[in-house]
Structures are given as structure tokens and as C-alpha cells.
């Protein structure tokens, strides 16, 4: 592996972690959005708030990580993507502001009307933000970002594949979130809520699966390079993802909870890596290769060293945070 490939793996690792943790946060926002009126939705919303509060900011940093690694290690690709897909990216940035602020403010305030308005801002942007991010990823995979940038600001992403990818992002986040919340509800000893999120997890799993399959057809029609590799080199990962997904369905239906979360995460991780393998060796299929867009070797070395330090410093700290939060040692008050 060259240094550029290692940097690409680092980038993809960040993307995976964001897809899992950021995705689940977005998904929780979706469930918050459709939890119903203030009274009916009070209990699921409380569970969501409790699960999300201590971790959402840390989960959000993966996005920063992706941006920074992309612009440092692959500046040309970064410039091309940003100068082409600026419409969905700007909308996603607006969504991030509304979402983060809505969530943080809602927690500190007690008046019901204010809570409702802020909650709506949080929940609505939790759906729109991943959708627009998905369209960005879809547009890249679709080959709509020209090398050198300045591609068409609309037709680059208002296409079937990007739109499907956006929907898939929303659905898979909702699926992960529901599975996580099933386990959280079980730990809180709330059988009602557990059932409530089991039903939602099942629905979301089916919807996400349907989008994934439909996406394959769109890929087949539009984006042959990615499709061919997805059904060839990346096929094992696709199969793993499907098996994990089925496993989750079975466990949900049979009430088994141990290992539920890893399995659900596995389904998403396998898809993300399947996608990565299918795009390889391109950053912008089929026009800009990883090696062509890479920064000078010293910069790549710096990125790799920084990543290793981060792995030593950040991962244990992150583990501590999740552990404390799972042990319920971090309470809202």
C-alpha cells in the first residue's frame, strides 16, 4: 500500500465511524420528529434525549475529521467536490447549525413551547442534513464531479443515484438509531418502549433494505464502474451486509438482545466498505485516482502520524465516554 492508499483508508475509516455514530444520531432525530404530540411522544423523546445528550458532540467531530483529512491529503478532490456540490453542501451546513443548536438549547430550557420549536428545528434538520450529505456521496460515486471542479451546481446531484443515496442515508441512520434505542430501553427496563423501538427498527430495516436494492438497479443503469466492482471485488462485503441485516431482523423478532448492536453496526460498516472497494482506486470515479490527487509524501506522512496519535489518545477517551454514558454515570442534570 502506498501512503496515499493509507490516507484513503484513514479517510474511509472516518467516514465509516461518522456513518455509524453520526448516522445513529441523525436517525434518533428522525424518531424524535415523528414521535407524535407532546404527550404521546414524551417517553420516547426522553429516552432519545438521554441517550444522545452526552455523546452527540463527540459523534459530530467525525465529520470535521473527514473534511480535514480530505482537504489535507487530497486537496484536489476536495476543491473539485466543494466547487461543484456547493448547493447540497451549503444546505447540509445550515442543517448542522439548526440541529446542533436546536438540540443543545432544547435541553437547557423548560418552557414547553420553546422546547417544541427547538425540538422541531433539531428533528427536521436531522432528516435533511443526512439526506443532503447522502446526495453528495451519491453524486461523487455517480461520477458527476469533474476534475478541476466547477461542475453543474444542480444537475450534478439532482439525479436518481444521488437522491437514492440521500434517502438511504436517512433510512440507515434511522435503522441504527432504532436498534440502539431498543437496547437502551431494555437497559432502562422499559418493556413498552423496547417494543416501540423494535417495531420501528423493523420498519426502518425494511425501508433501508428496499432503498439499497433499488439503488443497485440505479447503479446498474447509470454507474457501471461502481456496479461492476460492487458485484465482483466487493461482493463478499455486500453479502456480509445482507447477512448482518437478516440477523438483526431475526433477533429483533425473537427478542434476542445480546449482540444486536454489533450486528446492526456490521451491516452498515460492510456497506460503507463495499462502496469503498467498489470505487477503488478512484476518489472521483472514473476520472481522479487516489494517487493522482494525493498530497506530497511528507504531508501524507503527517496525516498518518496524526491519525496514529489520535488512535492512541482519542479512542480510549471515546471508549471512556461511551462506557460512562452506558453505565448511566453521565446524567442530564
Amino acid at each position: 500500500m502506498t501512503r496515499a492508499d493509507v490516507a484513503a483508508v484513514i479517510l474511509w475509516t472516518g467516514a465509516t465511524l461518522y456513518a455509524v455514530f453520526g448516522g445513529a444520531d441523525f436517525g434518533a432525530g428522525l424518531w424524535d420528529l415523528i414521535a407524535g404530540g407532546a404527550e404521546k411522544g414524551a417517553r420516547p423523546r426522553a429516552l432519545i434525549e438521554r441517550s444522545l445528550t452526552p455523546v452527540w458532540e463527540a459523534n459530530h467531530v467525525w465529520l470535521i475529521f473527514i473534511l480535514v483529512v480530505l482537504w489535507t491529503a487530497f486537496p484536489e478532490a476536495f476543491g473539485a467536490i466543494m466547487s461543484t456540490l456547493y448547493v447540497p453542501l451549503t444546505l447540509a451546513a445550515f442543517g448542522i447549525v439548526l440541529r446542533g443548536a436546536g438540540f443543545a438549547f432544547r435541553e437547557s430550557i423548560r418552557s414547553i413551547e420553546a422546547k417544541r420549536a427547538l425540538g422541531a428545528s433539531f428533528a427536521l434538520s436531522s432528516v435533511l442534513t443526512p439526506f443532503f450529505m447522502g446526495t453528495v456521496v451519491g453524486a461523487i460515486a455517480d461520477g458527476n464531479v469533474p476534475v478541476g471542479g466547477d461542475g453543474d451546481p444542480f444537475s450534478s446531484w439532482l439525479q436518481p443515484l444521488p437522491l437514492f443515496t440521500g434517502a438511504l442515508f436517512v433510512a440507515s441512520g434511522a435503522y441504527l438509531a432504532a436498534v440502539f434505542l431498543v437496547v437502551d430501553a431494555r437497559r432502562a427496563g422499559d418493556a413498552d418502549l423496547e417494543g416501540y423501538f423494535v417495531r420501528r427498527a423493523l420498519t426502518a430495516a425494511l425501508v433501508a433494505g428496499a432503498f439499497a436494492v433499488a439503488g443497485l438497479f440505479v447503479l446498474h443503469a447509470d454507474t457501471r464502474y461502481v456496479y461492476d466492482r460492487l458485484t465482483d471485488q466487493a461482493l463478499p462485503l455486500v453479502v456480509v451486509s445482507a447477512l448482518c441485516g437478516l440477523g438483526v431482523l431475526v433477533m429483533l423478532l425473537r427478542g434476542a438482545r445480546r449482540g444486536l448492536r454489533p450486528l446492526a453496526v456490521g451491516a452498515v460498516v460492510a456497506v460503507v466498505w463495499g462502496w469503498g472497494v467498489a470505487q477503488f482506486p478512484y476518489l472521483l470515479p472514473t476520472s481522479l485516482k487516489i494517487a493522482e490527487s494525493a498530497a506530497p509524501p511528507e504531508t501524507l506522512a503527517a496525516v498518518i502520524v496524526v491519525f496514529l496519535i489520535a488512535a492512541v489518545v482519542v479512542l480510549p477517551a471515546l471508549g471512556l465516554l461511551y462506557w460512562l454514558s452506558q453505565k448511566e454515570l453521565l446524567s442530564g442534570e
Binding site: 480535514v68 483529512v69 482537504w71 489535507t72 491529503a73 486537496p75 476536495f78 476543491g79 471542479g149 498530497a295
Partner: peptide
């Protein structure tokens, strides 16, 4: 595009 590989290191 031109300087991300230099300017970006600090941000990494």
C-alpha cells in the same frame, strides 16, 4: 486545492 496539503496539516 493548491495549498490544502500545506495549510491543512495544522487542522489535522
Amino acid at each position: 486545492e493548491r495549498f490544502g496539503d500545506a495549510f491543512g496539516i495544522a487542522f489535522a
